[in-house]
C-alpha cells in the first residue's frame, strides 16, 4: 500500500475541509446570539428554544438529514425561498453538505459558548458601565474577550463534528463524487467497493490526523488564553 493520495481522495479531503470551514464560520454569529439569548434572556419558550437547538445532538442523524431534505430540498419551503431570494441552492450541492454539517455541529458550539458566557463575571460588566461603556461597548470590550476560550472551543468542536458528519449529509445531499462526497462518505464508498480497502485506510489516517491536529490546536490555544485571562 502506498501512502500517496489519488486525485479522487484529494478531492474528498479538499471538499471536507471546505464544508467544515464554511459550516464552522457560518455557525458562529448565530451560535453567539443563541448562546446570549439562552444564557441571559428571560422569556416564555426559552426551554423550547433550548430543546430545538439541542435536537440534532439527540436525533438520529438520518432524521435530521431527512428533515433538512423536507425543508431545504428543491420543493421544500425554505429551499425554494433561498433559491429565489439569493440563488442559493442546497439540494445535492456542497452547500447542502455544509448546511447539514453546520446544523449537526450547532448544539456543540452553542454549548461551549454558553458555558463560557455564564462564567463571565457580570460585576466586570457593571464596572465597565461605570467607566462609560454602553451595552455594545461592554459586550465588545469585556464580555466577548472574556468568552473567547469558549468561542474557540466551540469553533473547534463544530469543525471536528462537521469534518466527520455522515448520516445527515448522505440523507440530505446524497453521495456525489466531487460535489457532496466528503471524506467520511468517500471512506464508506471505498469500504463498499471491492479492492477499496487501501484507499479507505489512507483516508482514515488523514481523518485521524486532521481531528488530532484540531484537538491539539484547541488545547494549545485554551492554555494560552487561560494564562492571559487568569482572574485578577
Amino acid at each position: 500500500m502506498t501512502l500517496a493520495l489519488t486525485p479522487e481522495e484529494l478531492d474528498a479531503i479538499r471538499l471536507s475541509l471546505r464544508v467544515a470551514l464554511w459550516a464552522m464560520a457560518c455557525s458562529l454569529p448565530p451560535a453567539v446570539l443563541v448562546a446570549l439569548v439562552l444564557a441571559r434572556g428571560r422569556f416564555w419558550g426559552k426551554a423550547l428554544l433550548d430543546g430545538i437547538v439541542h435536537l440534532p445532538l439527540v436525533l438520529p442523524p438520518v432524521v435530521t438529514g431527512y428533515l433538512l431534505l423536507l425543508l431545504f430540498g428543491r420543493q421544500g419551503p425554505l429551499g425554494r425561498f433561498f433559491a429565489e431570494a439569493f440563488g442559493l441552492v442546497f439540494a445535492f450541492r456542497w452547500t447542502g453538505a455544509a448546511l447539514a454539517a453546520a446544523i449537526m455541529g450547532f448544539p456543540l458550539m452553542v454549548r461551549a459558548i454558553r458555558l463560557s458566557l455564564e462564567a463571565v463575571d457580570r460585576r466586570l460588566e457593571a464596572a465597565a458601565a461605570t467607566l462609560g461603556a454602553g451595552a455594545l461597548g461592554v459586550f465588545a470590550t469585556v464580555t466577548l474577550p472574556l468568552m473567547l476560550p469558549g468561542i474557540i472551543a466551540g469553533l473547534i468542536l463544530s469543525f471536528a463534528r462537521s469534518f466527520g458528519e455522515f448520516g445527515a449529509t448522505i440523507t440530505f445531499v446524497s453521495n456525489i463524487p466531487g460535489e457532496t462526497e466528503t471524506l467520511p462518505l468517500a471512506i464508506y464508498a471505498f469500504t463498499q467497493a471491492p479492492g477499496g480497502d487501501p484507499m479507505a485506510l489512507r483516508l482514515t489516517l488523514v481523518s485521524v490526523a486532521v481531528s488530532m491536529s484540531a484537538l491539539l490546536a484547541a488545547e494549545l490555544l485554551a492554555r494560552r488564553l487561560a494564562r492571559k485571562l487568569a482572574p485578577a
Binding site: 460585576r123 466586570l124 457593571a126 464596572a127 469585556v142 492571559k228 482572574p231 485578577a232
Partner: peptide, 13 residues
Amino acid sequence: IGYVFQEGRLFPH
C-alpha cells in the same frame, strides 16, 4: 460617576 469597588474589578484580559 466613577466607582471603586471593594474587590477592584480590574479587567483580567
